[in-house]
Amino acid sequence: MGVEKLKYKDKLKNKNEDIYILALESSCDETAAAVNKNGLEVMANVVSSQVEIHKKFGGVVPEIASRKHLELLLPVIDQALAEAGIKFEDLDAVAATSGPGLVGGLLVTLTAAKTISLALNIPLIGVNHIAGHIYANFIANPEIKKPLLCLTISGGHTDLLYFEDLRGYQILGRTIDDAAGEAFDKISRFLGLGYPGGPAIEKAAQTGNEEAIDFPRADLGKSYNFSFSGLKTSVMNYVNNEKQRGNEINTSDLAASFQKAVVDSLASNLLQAVEEYKVESVVLSGGVAANQRLRSYLEEKLEKYNLKLYYPPLELCTDNAAMIGAVAYYQYLERDFAPLSISADPSLKL
């Protein structure tokens, strides 16, 4: 929408002024609120996790999550404002995740943000959750040099992106079937290792031999796309075959070999892109970026290009609102505001 028509157009600030944004996030199983100053400076970052509640079901149950978000909404906002030491009146904009995620949950904070926008007459900013995970890196490592490559890997996404600067990006490749995190979750469940699958597999893999079983790595030719569906099937087939033969399965070896296959697939595309694009840094984002094996393997491989691997610290790896506030700041500078009619998009793409 055109800025000139906006009621708050006279209040809009420019880059040289201090800009305070309240950001909200409830796309999955964390209810979160943050206050950011000028994008990357995090004044408060409050996250209330529901992981324990969903553990029993082996995954996030949409209705339970939505109920929890509604319950936690005001407490997390109160705490964020208190920690930042500011009042509603001090805010320059309000941001919320508009997708991707579970619609029922997204709508809680998106509706709250709309109400704040209307009540205080400040801009509303709708933020893509995946972009948030990427910007978590820039909060943690403001010194990151551009241009850069970013591998964003989570339960819903596996994308390889190229950033000229922080205002935009180009998508080089994405998964054609399962996301990497999804593969971890499914295999973890299949092996009875629990939820969430990433940490469970990683833990089991620690004592295993990653060369024990040679699982296939998807070969998609010259493209930067990913595929994990074939790997998932071959793990399942392997287990079923071994069981039929009456062989006992070494879960540690299996987890380690599976994890290595995922790491190899991710690394091979990333390294191919490093060869092609002349970048200054490489960045990981998304829940799977917490995987230590992936980090160590990439660090080792990137050494020869003299490139540093960046990843967000643990507290910014899980869903949080500070990362939403960081993206929102750049959208604010671009005057990329959302109308009050914006809806949640469960499958919003980058």
Binding site: E63, I77, G104, L107, T111, A112, A119
Partner: peptide, 19 residues
């Protein structure tokens, strides 16, 4: 509808909190 209800209730909560 639970989702519909949460939209209205969230709005009322926020107005209550802000003002």
């Amino acid at each position: 509808s639970f989702t519909g209800l949460r939209i209205g209730i969230t709005t009322a909560k926020m107005l209550g909190r802000i003002f």
